[in-house]
């Protein structure tokens, strides 16, 4: 492998990741249904839908939750093409590759055959359950990520009794991920600009190991600098976070509606 191919791949994927994150921020700024709901209420409602889609033993209940996720995406002004692409690009790569062999490998009653292989009734249902569940779960988490600013999601987690210490570490971690990604991109660009042609695999791996080592040392130094800056601003080791504003009627309406739907799906299933 030439140096540029794996350096390019890292640069390309890093850029795509930043673009995807910025695109999600732009969607979270739109005025849609889920954007209007308080993140605390949204988190509770979406987690309830996720729980139903994972708990149910009825395939059609999963399909029902998936259908609702599509309606919510449209109501939240998320492009259906983008939404479906985000979900269905993930599903074939990680799930269909696993689900398809299950059609043939799961023991049970013969449903049909392809070539010399037998598809079993149990295998077909097993594959359908897996694909439907994963697609629905990914859809729900995508709705959450696309319609909520990260710091508001942290506020919602705080309201759900996640310790303040964990919230403050997550807040800082999120910010510094971007600093470290930028640092990594600089390392890769410097490497790309200094190397012509292909290098042996051994040299490429040595470069990556050194890069990882240097980034770790920089991270630890940065942690020390951040700590000193925190002390300078009055940090005394105790983490205090501001309480959120009270829920509004739209938030209570959303929770009621979601739980009514969850109840109906459970009753049907």
């Amino acid at each position: 492998m030439s140096v540029n191919s794996f350096v390019d791949k890292n640069l390309r994927e890093g850029t795509a990741w930043i673009e995807r994150t910025l695109a999600a921020e732009a969607i979270a700024d739109k005025s849609g249904l889920l954007q209007a709901i308080d993140p605390r209420a949204k988190l509770v409602g979406l987690l309830a839908l996720l729980a139903v889609s994972l708990l149910t033993h009825d395939f059609w209940v999963i399909v029902g939750v998936y259908g609702e996720s599509l309606i919510l995406a449209v109501a939240s002004r998320i492009s259906l093409v983008l939404f479906l692409r985000r979900v269905w690009l993930f599903v074939p790569v990680f799930t269909a590759a696993i689900a398809v062999p299950a059609l043939f490998l799961t023991p049970g009653d013969r449903l049909t055959g392809i070539g010399g292989l037998t598809i079993t009734y149990q295998g077909a249902w097993g594959a359908a359950f897996l694909i439907a569940r994963v697609a629905t779960a990914v859809s729900i988490s995508t709705l959450l990520v696309l319609t909520t600013k990260w710091y508001r999601l942290l506020g919602a987690m705080r309201a759900l009794r996640v310790p303040a210490f964990v919230i403050s570490v997550l807040t800082m971690c999120y910010r510094y991920i971007f600093v470290l990604v930028r640092l990594l991109r600089e390392f890769l660009l410097v490497r790309k600009s200094r190397v012509i042609g292909a290098l042996p695999w051994r040299d490429n791996v040595r470069f990556l190991a050194r890069t990882a080592g240097i980034i770790l040392i920089r991270s630890l130094k940065l942690a020390e600098d951040v700590y000193l800056a925190m002390i300078a601003r009055g940090f005394d080791g105790q983490v205090k976070l501001a309480d959120g504003r009270p829920l509004r009627s739209i938030d209570y309406g959303w929770i009621t509606l979601t739980f009514a739907l969850v109840g109906a799906l459970i009753w049907k299933g």
Partner: peptide, 14 residues
């Protein structure tokens, strides 16, 4: 000790 928050944050980011 008091460095826990920034150290863990950078460690998780790494």
């Amino acid at each position: 000790t008091q460095r826990t928050v920034p150290t863990l944050a950078l460690l998780s980011a790494f």
